[in-house]
Simulated assay, not measured.
Amino acid sequence: MFNPFERINDAFAPQYRVNLSIERLDGSIMLTLSDEQGVVAKRLISPAQRNDPKRLQRVIDSVQQGIAIDPGEHTLPMLASGSRRQAGKVICLPRSPCH
Rank of each mutant, 00 (worst) to 15 (best):
F2M: 15
F2S: 13
F5W: 03
E6I: 12
E6W: 03
R7F: 01
N9G: 06
A11R: 09
F12E: 05
P14T: 06
Y16I: 07
R17V: 04
R17N: 10
V18I: 07
L20G: 11
L20N: 06
I22W: 07
E23P: 10
G27R: 02
S28W: 01
I29P: 01
L31C: 07
T32A: 08
L33C: 11
S34C: 08
S34I: 09
D35M: 14
D35V: 03
E36I: 12
Q37S: 13
Q37F: 09
Q37P: 06
V39F: 13
V40P: 04
A41R: 10
A41S: 15
K42H: 02
R43T: 05
I45W: 05
I45C: 00
S46Y: 06
S46M: 09
S46G: 04
S46R: 01
A48S: 08
A48K: 14
Q49M: 11
R50S: 14
N51F: 03
D52L: 13
D52K: 01
D52E: 14
P53T: 02
K54I: 09
R55W: 03
I60R: 01
S62C: 04
S62I: 03
I67P: 12
I69T: 02
D70L: 05
P71W: 04
G72I: 07
G72D: 11
T75M: 10
T75H: 08
T75V: 12
P77Y: 03
P77T: 07
L79V: 05
A80G: 15
A80F: 00
G82E: 06
G82V: 02
R84N: 14
R84L: 12
A87I: 07
G88I: 00
I91V: 15
I91F: 04
C92K: 14
L93Q: 12
R95E: 01
P97W: 02
P97K: 08
P97M: 04
P97A: 15
H99V: 08
H99S: 11
